[in-house]
């Protein structure tokens, strides 16, 4: 259930991505850095996997070069 909700959220943010015209200069001038960061921090929870502890614990690789 939670996973589905998350997928839906992701799809929403995909859509947003498509409709936002990339214009870095306008974006840069329009917002303060602080405000940018605040909005972005809100998005982190949407993107982060849910069971952080479990995920990290399981992320084990064989050593490479």
């Amino acid at each position: 259930m939670a996973q589905e909700k998350k997928q839906a959220k992701r799809r929403e943010s995909d859509k947003k991505e498509e409709t936002t015209a990339p214009n870095p200069e306008v974006v840069e001038k329009g917002k303060t850095l602080k405000k940018d960061m605040d909005e972005l921090l809100d998005e982190i929870d949407d993107v982060l996997e849910e069971n952080a502890e479990e995920f990290v614990k399981n992320y084990v690789q064989k050593g490479g070069e």
Partner: peptide, 10 residues
């Protein structure tokens, strides 16, 4: 990784 293993960028 989370265990102290490493892999590189050469």
């Amino acid at each position: 990784d989370s265990m102290g293993n490493t892999y590189g960028c050469h």
